[in-house]
Design a protein around this nucleic acid. Sequence first.
DNA 1: TGTATTTTTTTAGTCGACAGAAAACTTGCG
DNA 2: CGCAAGTTTTCTGTCGACTAAAAAAATACA
Lengths: 238, 238
Amino acid sequence: MVQVSQKQAKVTLSERKRGSGAKFVYGTLRDEILDLRLRPGSPIDEVQLAERFGMSRTPIREALVRLAGDGLVETLPNRSTMVANIDALGLPAFYDAITLMYRVTTRLAAQHHQPDDLERIRLLQDDYANAATSRKALDMISVNRDFHAAIAEAGRNPYFTTLTLRLLDEGRRILRLYYQSFDDRLPQEYIEEHEAIIAAIAARDVALCDDLARAHADQIVHQIQQLFSRDQRQNIAL
Amino acid sequence: MVQVSQKQAKVTLSERKRGSGAKFVYGTLRDEILDLRLRPGSPIDEVQLAERFGMSRTPIREALVRLAGDGLVETLPNRSTMVANIDALGLPAFYDAITLMYRVTTRLAAQHHQPDDLERIRLLQDDYANAATSRKALDMISVNRDFHAAIAEAGRNPYFTTLTLRLLDEGRRILRLYYQSFDDRLPQEYIEEHEAIIAAIAARDVALCDDLARAHADQIVHQIQQLFSRDQRQNIAL
DNA sequence: TGTATTTTTTTAGTCGACAGAAAACTTGCG
DNA sequence: CGCAAGTTTTCTGTCGACTAAAAAAATACA
């Protein structure tokens, strides 16, 4: 009897459309994982999530399966699933991949972009500048992702777009880690680099896009590398 | 024409391990989709699959969710899910992607390979040669995939490996389409090209790897392009 | 006290059932 | 006949319950 009344209360609380359950859970958990609100390595309990979202385990399960497909969650057979760890040893591979994807997507954007692509990209760049001037580092991280995602879209190659998105998300996690533990300032340089990239895409200058994208990627890689070396020093100092 | 959908191999699983259900269904369906035993665009009925595999819909569902993540299956909300189509308009993007991945994975293999990597690759090349001399085109297709997958593995970059695998699988579908409707011979050239690639990797000659991989990719792209132009001519002739 | 073995607890994998959304079919009206 | 409204059918999305695998706890034994 108690169970019935509780359940009804929860159902009225969350009036959902059929078929949206798993998608909603997927999106929510994905955001939380990428924002590090769910810490890497922390265990995920299906029953707990089911209670939290006010639904049965089935849609929760589907969301977890999809997250596992994205590599955001690791599932141990018959035992718990946990938030994927950030693999420090895999960082060089990450650097290689994001650098190549920046280059190739920017090149393709120069070749295949259409007018409204550029408009979208410029709007995002405005958002980025705003976030930068108001010193909102976390916003900058997220807008930066959208900026490069838009460039990838303009390149019109789904294979590259997918991989780029995945890398950007992975990078978002790493950068969160960074700006959480250290200061909240990002170099203004990025804004200028972005501007230059936009201009090169608009001019359809493939070679210049390549150069700029490579330099931009190098910047970010360098930034992350600094993070890790700084981290080390601090540990030693303690 | 072989119409198999009614008489798919029924699976006896009186002794199934717990937790293997979804994985087994995933693997089986994946193979059938890549081999075109399940035709692109054909609908997938969960209940039917549940009967065929002798299990409930739950593990079937999980397998389908994973296949959707791989892009091998398309799900319409609240309505049927179907085998993903081969998108002819997306072929140029495919060419770009597979060419770049061939190049970058082969380069990385030259840099990062270890002794047993080369051994594995050479064994697969033997398999490939055997399949070629005995004129087994379908075997060649599948071994060719494994060959390049092994090279990607030797490059030790999970991001590139994942994308390469996906592209190789996509290519497997396209080639099946080809060798199903036309002749069963593949140019011997491929064997020699493979040999040259192996040698270049062993010599850790990055620049040569790049050239060879690019040429190899061009070959395959050219082959597929021929397929589609031939297809067109036939349609017009009829 | 430390280790091997049994028992308990936790929690993932599976099942059968039902409800709701979309398609397929039927009916009513011009 | 042709089409709009209503009805039935089909099949997915979700649920609660059950089962079994693995971890944690308890016990036995040296």
